[in-house]
Structure formats: structure tokens, C-alpha cells
């Protein structure tokens, strides 16, 4: 348990639906088995793109701030919002710059590309290898559990309401089997012209 990835704990998951995507995270921040906060969200919005970060909490904050800076600079130079695909490449190259002294984070991206109108999700390892998935991406200390629940519950072309229920059940049941994750959750459901952010209570133990 001395891996930097599992000191603070946390879980994140993104899913694709029909013309919509969803991304969700838990709220726990811990120091090994001691919980120090139950209000530590791991999803950060950058315009139309949502970035989930799990891993070492200090790196989660640093990387979130780094990308806020980079995405702001992008928007000022380009005079447009960054697309999820561009964001994916930005995350990948930024992480690889630190190839031999990486940030201990496992990022997840979700968003809808407003040029094509297509939903997009992807995940990364800590040095920027991109995982383009058509169905779902999981990360964090509950990733094994999330793989199980997502693989069991997910189905293609879900409407936003069904997608919300699916991602919520997948996350909640996964974090209940992980000692380092839980204590509530945030769920974002992203549609073309609407984003719904919900707070889930979940088990408080």
C-alpha cells in the first residue's frame, strides 16, 4: 500500500450513451486507512471537456491546475473551446513530458465533440498512453471492481436517464467493495446542450 497510486484512494468512471456521455467520481480523500475528507471531488470541467483524475491527491490538484492553465491558454490563443480529442492529446503529451518522473495520476476524459456532435471518452496511464474505449473507462483504487460492475451493467445506446442510473450503480457498488473509495459521489451526465451534475450520498462508512 505504499504505491503513490493508492495512498489517498479514489475512483473515477466514464461511460458512453446514445448522444450523451457520463463521468462520475467518489468524494473520499484518505491517508492510507484514515479518511481525512469526504468532499474531495476528482472531476474537473474545462469548458465542454471533463477531466477525471485519480491517484496521488497532491498530483491530482497539481495536474488539474496545470490543465486549467493550459486549456485557458489554448482558448485565448485559438478563441474557441478545446475539443475532447484535442484535450486527450494535450493530456497525453503533457504526461509524457514527465516520462521519467511522472505525476501519479490515472486521468479519464469525457465530453461531446461539438463539431461532430459525437460523444467521446478516453483514459490514460500515468505516462500518457491513451486508451480510446467505445464503452467505458475506469480508474482509481476501485478499478477492478469498476471493471466488473461496468462490464456487467453497461449496454450500448443508453438514453441519458438510463446512463445516469447505470454509471451511478456501477460506481456506488464498486466503491462499496473498496476500502479506499466511497463517501459519496458526483455524477455528470453530458448531453449536447445540457450538463446535469448530481451529488449521490452513498454509504458513509
Amino acid at each position: 500500500m505504499s504505491s503513490p497510486f493508492s495512498i489517498n484512494g479514489g475512483a473515477c468512471v466514464a461511460m458512453v450513451g446514445k448522444d450523451c456521455v457520463a463521468i462520475a467520481c467518489d468524494l473520499r480523500l484518505g491517508l492510507q486507512s484514515l479518511t481525512v475528507s469526504n468532499n474531495f471531488p476528482k472531476i474537473f470541467p474545462y469548458g465542454d471537456v471533463y477531466l477525471g483524475l485519480t491517484g496521488l491527491a497532491t498530483d491530482v490538484t497539481t495536474v488539474a491546475d496545470l490543465f486549467r492553465y493550459k486549456v485557458n491558454m489554448y482558448r485565448l490563443r485559438e478563441e474557441r473551446q478545446i475539443s475532447p480529442q484535442t484535450m486527450a492529446n494535450l493530456v497525453s503529451t503533457s504526461l509524457y513530458e514527465k516520462r521519467f518522473g511522472p505525476y501519479f495520476v490515472s486521468p479519464v476524459i469525457a465530453g461531446i465533440n461539438h463539431t461532430t456532435g459525437k460523444p467521446f471518452i478516453c483514459g490514460f496511464d500515468s505516462i500518457g498512453c491513451i486508451d480510446f474505449a467505445k464503452d467505458f473507462i475506469v480508474s482509481g483504487t476501485a478499478s477492478d471492481q469498476l471493471f466488473g460492475t461496468c462490464e456487467g451493467l453497461w449496454e450500448p445506446d443508453m438514453e441519458p436517464e438510463d446512463l445516469f442510473e447505470t454509471i451511478s450503480q456501477a460506481l456506488l457498488n464498486a466503491v462499496d467493495r473498496d476500502a479506499l473509495s466511497g463517501w459519496g459521489a458526483y455524477v455528470y451526465v453530458i448531453e449536447k446542450d445540457k450538463v446535469t451534475k448530481r451529488l449521490l450520498k452513498g454509504r458513509q462508512d
Binding site: D144, Q145, F147, G148, T149, E151, G152, L153, Q169, N173, A174, D176, R177
Partner: peptide, 9 residues
């Protein structure tokens, strides 16, 4: 670890 949370649910 993959199957158990699915079964809980």
C-alpha cells in the same frame, strides 16, 4: 474483485 460488487447489486 470484479464479480463481487456486481453480485452485491
Amino acid at each position: 474483485s470484479l464479480i463481487m460488487p456486481f453480485l452485491d447489486n
